[in-house]
Simulated scan of single mutants.
Amino acid sequence: MESIAGRKSALVWAVHISVLALVLLWVVPTFGLLVSSFRTGDQIASSGWWSALSTQEQSLSPIRVEGDEVQKDGAYVIEGTLFPRGASTVSAWGTSSRAIDAYVPGDTAELGDGQSLTLDDKGNYVLTSPTSLEGTRLPRIFATASQPPEFTLNNYQTVLFGQTTGTSIGRAFLNTATVSIPATIIPILIAAFAAYALAWMNFPGRALLVAAVVGLLVVPLQLALIPLLQFHNWIGIGKGYLGIWMAHTGFGLPLAIYLLRNYMVGLPRDIIENARVDGATEFQIFTRIILPLSFPALASFAIFQFLWTWNDLLVALVFLGTGDSQLVLTAALVNLLGSRGGDWEILAASAFVSIAVPLFVFFAMQKYLVRGLLAGSVK
């Protein structure tokens, strides 16, 4: 009965479940990162992204009393609020980190020297003192409050346009684009010519060149970093955009030639032979017939190369440098982890900015990916 036509094998369901699990493992963290990038630091620290749409009761970071001092009934008074935007409700508060819930809204805390502090459930406080408070250290308020969902664009404004040193990654974003776009286009141009020659042109040593390309696929690029950098210094390129473009081109060419050659070999031979009979040159055949028909393979490699260069850290550090004007996105994120490890909202926004462009490129060109990768695998 298991072999009856139309009956699905249990293996089919296993494949479907495995694919679904892989999709969830990729989509859920990405969606969580997106949601977290629009939340405030206090909300990220107190609750997970899955509760972003619900009201949260959380212990707020201590807020120091501030405001203009005025005289009322012979006393000096400072009034203010913990929540300038409102909409939060205080459930408990205190003036010491050892007793953050010592008082309830409406209570008055005696601070000594005749000073008193009152806080209501809306976060409005009144600090009263018999003497002037100017030049004195004002008390802090530790509050526990229920806060409604809150989303903000300030994280992205800080990340992309912030002036604070070590926070803005706008320059790093431009540096990464400057590296990735040429480092994707140059290998494609060179590999397309090489793949056509290896697929359709007869010359001595062609088989050895194909074998060499396949062999280069398994060579770790780390082995070539230092010798290649020394070569760049010797010819006068040194560290810079030209050097990193050449490095990414060299590291990407074996895969590019391999994919494009496999695809071009599978193209109908009759089309090329008829073009030669009609008097077309090899360059005309390549530009007018081969390239248009090879677009799926070109697009599949472009996806791989762009994702590799966009997410690269090692090659960028070796061939571009570590200065603030030379950092790429991955290096900037490493710096943020070291300098702003507690600012999760900044890290979340920065991380999502770094993956937004690769996500767009992948989804825009993914329909060509499978066609390009499977090219030449079935005759």
Rank of each mutant, 00 (worst) to 15 (best):
T128P: 01
T128G: 03
T128M: 02
S129R: 02
S129V: 12
S129Y: 07
T131R: 13
S132T: 12
S132N: 15
L133Y: 14
L133C: 13
L133E: 02
L133D: 11
E134S: 11
G135R: 02
G135N: 08
T136H: 05
R137E: 04
R137A: 06
R140H: 01
I141E: 05
I141F: 05
I141T: 09
I141W: 03
F142L: 01
F142A: 09
F142Y: 15
F142S: 00
A143F: 10
A143N: 12
T144H: 13
T144M: 08
S146E: 11
S146N: 11
S146I: 12
S146G: 10
Q147Y: 05
Q147N: 11
Q147I: 04
Q147H: 04
Q147D: 09
Q147W: 01
P148F: 06
P149L: 06
E150P: 09
E150K: 09
E150V: 11
E150G: 08
F151A: 08
T152F: 11
N154H: 14
N154G: 14
N154M: 07
N155M: 08
Y156W: 08
Y156N: 13
Y156V: 03
T158M: 04
L160I: 07
G162I: 00
G162N: 09
G162L: 04
Q163T: 06
Q163I: 03
G166I: 05
G166T: 01
G166F: 01
T167Y: 03
T167V: 13
T167K: 04
T167Q: 14
T167N: 04
S168M: 01
S168A: 02
I169L: 00
I169F: 08
G170A: 01
G170F: 00
R171P: 07
R171Y: 05
R171W: 00
R171A: 10
A172F: 04
A172G: 14
A172C: 15
F173E: 03
F173R: 14
F173A: 00
F173H: 01
L174Q: 03
N175E: 12
T176Y: 06
T176S: 13
A177C: 10
A177I: 11
A177W: 13
A177H: 05
T178I: 10
T178F: 07
T178H: 12
V179K: 07
V179W: 09
S180A: 15
S180W: 05
I181V: 15
I181K: 14
P182G: 00
A183G: 03
A183N: 09
I185A: 15
I185V: 15
I185W: 11
I186G: 00
I186V: 09
P187Q: 13
P187Y: 07
P187L: 06
I188P: 11
I188N: 10
L189V: 14
I190N: 00
I190E: 01
A191R: 02
A194E: 00
A194Y: 00
A194N: 05
A195T: 14
A195M: 08
Y196K: 02
A197Y: 00
A197K: 10
A199N: 04
W200Y: 10
M201P: 02
M201L: 02
M201C: 13
N202I: 08
N202R: 15
G205I: 09
G205D: 11
G205Y: 15
A207P: 03
A207W: 08
